[in-house]
Design a protein around this nucleic acid. Structure first.
Lengths: 245, 245
DNA sequence: ACGGGCGATATGTCTATACATAAACTCGCT
DNA sequence: AGCGAGTTTATGTATAGACATATCGCCCGT
């Protein structure tokens, strides 16, 4: 019975985690480069003196994390290093500002309910006529402008939104806590402030701004489209992430 | 023996996937709201007429995807809707342009090797003296400027970089294929083009630009720091993602 | 040479069972 | 009431064995 007489004997507590981390380390250090076939399950199983299910659990998790690729009959292979595959957390703005330890402020600028016009339908990505709410509001941190939000909500998809009080609750927070989503898309770009934005964010015309446009769906049904404009020099979107765990 | 006489009878092929998707659907539709305790393993197991290991596999995957939270003795609970947790893929620029079906062009502007000065060490996040390569280069698509890259590589951490030919290979591509990383951090912001950038990207001074600053580590050791400047109105960072799968 | 069929094989799923572990609950003592 | 010890319970990990399924290669027939 050959125990894991291996190098790094990290006392993780459980066997399958030890196996997973042993393999992960070999991949990350380059000892097993991309394309390398890692040992068969029965080999690993003999090496650690455990059952196949235990090895399988370790490998399944690595496969789920896209570190390895498993092919029936062929074996298990180290995947190409992932193109930077970042986990970018963009929380609800109220929570974001709260997390920074700053005082959150919210101001509804305008809110209108209407039958979607062509531009609205284009923006939401719906083809059939529907009712929408169009909201414009401003978020601030410690009384300084933080972002201008411009949002469209599909009332047919989110009928409850008609009952929400957006004078008090920011629409993003309300939606996050009331409407489950299944898909979302972000687009990040840069613009310079025109007069309306400069005025709203209290910056100079021509100052750089970061723009996030986000579309959210539930089961392919558009829910909402939002455009957030941040002062570009003061605000940075930061994403920190690991290859796996 | 009560089979899954449930609503959506999606023929996924395998039992544990069926269970996983059944639960996922209930969570996403709001039928089981955040905080709701989902049935115990033994209840699910009786409901589907299967063994606990099968239920466990389904629940473990959902837990790994952060959709549910499992607590010993207490049970399993639906988690608060995740703050938008996006997978933002920022591929190697050469691959990115190739994927767009455009011709990739690369031009090394300057490359110097030096002992890291204070600014270099600050940028890389190293405290001890080390050698670095500083590279400035330009990427283009169909002969139009696409991005300006400004990079620092820690030669102590990546000694092989001394042998790479950055006149031919863009440093990002070379690193991606030769150096495994374990951690990375992005910061995205917006600036307006100064003269040097306007000149390099062939845009007007004062035009908006998107800036991505990326730091990469291997086991807490800094490898490289890079700053990419894109024309902000032409370039959009797009990320599409799902709650899970 | 070429292509179809077939067996070998590695992974994929599932079972029934066992023991470990953490946390919530109970109960009894002070 | 308050507190600590012991019990209960749901999840966590591990096992040996079974059958399913995809597919790589080999062999054989044309």
């Amino acid at each position: 019975m050959s125990l894991a007489d291996d190098s790094a004997k990290q006392a993780t507590g459980t066997l399958y985690k030890t196996i997973r981390q042993d393999i992960e380390r070999r991949i990350l250090t380059g000892e097993w480069p991309p394309g390398h076939r890692i040992p068969f399950e029965h080999e690993i199983m003999e090496h650690y003196g455990c059952s196949r299910m235990t090895v399988n659990k370790a490998l399944s998790e690595l496969a789920q994390a896209d570190l390895i690729e498993r092919r029936r009959r062929a074996g298990t292979f180290v995947r190409r290093p992932q193109f930077l595959s970042a986990v970018l957390k963009i929380p609800d703005i109220r929570a974001e500002i709260g997390a920074l330890g700053r005082a959150y402020g919210y101001e509804l600028i305008s809110s209108t309910r209407r039958t979607a016009n062509a531009a609205d339908r284009e923006r939401l990505g719906v083809k059939t006529p529907c009712k929408v709410i169009a909201i414009r509001c401003r978020h601030s941190a410690d009384n300084l402008p933080f972002a201008i939000e411009d949002r469209l909500i599909d009332l047919d998809a989110v009928p409850d939104a008609a009952k929400a009080n957006f004078k008090v609750d920011p629409p993003g927070s309300w939606l996050l806590h009331h409407v489950p989503w299944t898909e979302a898309e972000h687009a990040i770009s840069a613009i310079v402030a025109d007069e309306a934005i400069a005025d709203g964010l209290d910056i100079a015309i021509g100052a750089p701004c970061l723009v996030i446009e986000r579309h959210t769906w539930r089961q392919n049904q558009p829910l909402t489209a939002v455009r957030l404009v941040y002062p570009g020099e003061q605000h940075r979107l930061v994403a920190r992430f690991r290859g796996s765990e």
